[in-house]
């Protein structure tokens, strides 16, 4: 047992060293320089994948060095030289054939066993007490619903650190793939199916993700952000999201913006709790609390909002939000209202 443990230790150390080397080769793959990296796991699930990858990398490097080395040695050593004798016409060697059939089979077994174990470990049922979030993919943004808190939001997912998050994944239109590399491998959202994915984030931070299955014109613009927060921060966030929307003073610019919102047709697609019932576009009840919008591709500030409302398709190809041909005054008022919805 001790021997095995020692062996395992050396192994994972060697693998770790190799992955470090790989990281160095690509310029220290820290997640600050590479925010969407798959090599900087931040959850139990992502770490299980990383451990498997390290085992694989060990064998990949060993095989690469041995086989490419054998190729190079052969080519250099047996290159044609003047006066070299005619080669012996060797037709084969049964012992060699058996050996180089069994050797890869053994290496495969070393990877296949942890692979199957990891599959069953990571695709099992989520532990009880997990935070349930329903994820709905739309062309081209992500919707997040928290049944536990009665919250619906878009493009930005908030979860508490240390608590398992159990996602149920659905789509409103075509196939998309939910992918936040820091915490989990990708999982498709497929029409007429509900998929599941769970992970327990282990560090606080902001992690980007994006749709990974080609889904049409703005596939590249279907991004999202994951905010892993301390339990206290998360509780504050849920409380703020559960509050009713801000009611602006009717004489203020924001108040005029609310009138525009009600009059020009925004209500048909967007929910603002107690104001409008639309469910086609993102829920805007607390839209100003988000850092980004339109599939997390624009910062949530006045100039970007104004540009977006003026002509959504010019900002984001194929965007399904209607261009309502609003005048600059209407847009300014609307932006003020949206920015008031903290």
């Amino acid at each position: 047992m001790a021997v095995r443990k020692l062996k395992g230790l050396t192994w994972s150390r060697a693998a770790g060293a190799l992955v470090t080397l790989m990281a160095l080769a690509c310029g220290a793959c820290g997640y600050r320089e590479y925010p969407q990296t798959t090599l900087h796991p931040q959850s139990d699930y992502a770490q299980a994948i990383q451990r498997l990858l390290e085992t694989q990398m060990f064998w990949v490097v060993v095989i690469f060095v041995l086989v490419e080395g054998a190729l190079i040695v052969t080519v250099v050593r047996f290159r044609s030289r003047p006066g070299a004798p005619d080669p012996k016409p060797v037709h084969g060697n049964t012992v060699l054939e058996v050996a180089w059939t069994i050797a890869p089979a053994l290496i495969l077994a070393f990877v296949a066993v942890p692979t199957v174990l990891t599959i069953f470990k990571t695709q099992g049922k989520a532990p009880p007490g997990a935070l349930e979030v329903k994820v709905v993919g739309h062309q081209w943004w992500w919707e997040f619903q928290y049944p536990e808190f009665g919250i619906t939001t878009g493009s930005e997912l908030h979860v508490p650190v240390g608590r398992t998050v159990s996602l149920s994944l659905e789509t409103g239109d075509v196939i998309h793939s939910f992918w936040i590399p820091a915490v989990a491998g990708k999982r498709d959202v497929v029409p007429a199916r509900v998929n599941h994915l769970w992970f327990t984030p282990d560090s606080v931070g902001e992690f980007p993700g994006q749709c990974a299955e080609f889904c049409g014109a703005s596939h590249a613009n279907m991004r999202m952000k994951l905010f892993v927060q301390t339990p206290a921060e998360f509780a504050a966030w849920t409380a703020a999201q559960q509050a009713p929307p801000v009611e602006p003073d009717s004489t203020s610019l924001a108040g005029k913006g609310k009138q525009v919102f009600l009059e020009v047709g925004c209500v048909a697609c967007h929910t603002i709790q107690g104001v409008s019932p639309g469910i086609i576009g993102p829920n805007l009840t607390h839209v100003a609390s988000r850092t980004s919008f339109a599939g997390a591709i624009f910062p949530n500030d006045a100039p970007h909002l104004a540009k977006w409302i003026e002509n959504p398709q010019a900002s984001k190809p194929g965007a399904t939000m209607l261009n309502l041909n609003l005048n600059p005054d209407q847009i300014a008022a609307l932006v003020a209202y949206l920015q008031a919805l903290k």
Binding site: T38, L53, V67, V111
Partner: peptide, 21 residues
């Protein structure tokens, strides 16, 4: 050989879930 080795890496579903697409 190199194409085969990267193929061997995403033959493993958990690893593939980070590499696929």
């Amino acid at each position: 050989i190199m194409g085969g080795l990267s193929g061997f890496m995403h033959a493993s579903p958990p690893a593939d879930l980070q590499q696929s697409d």
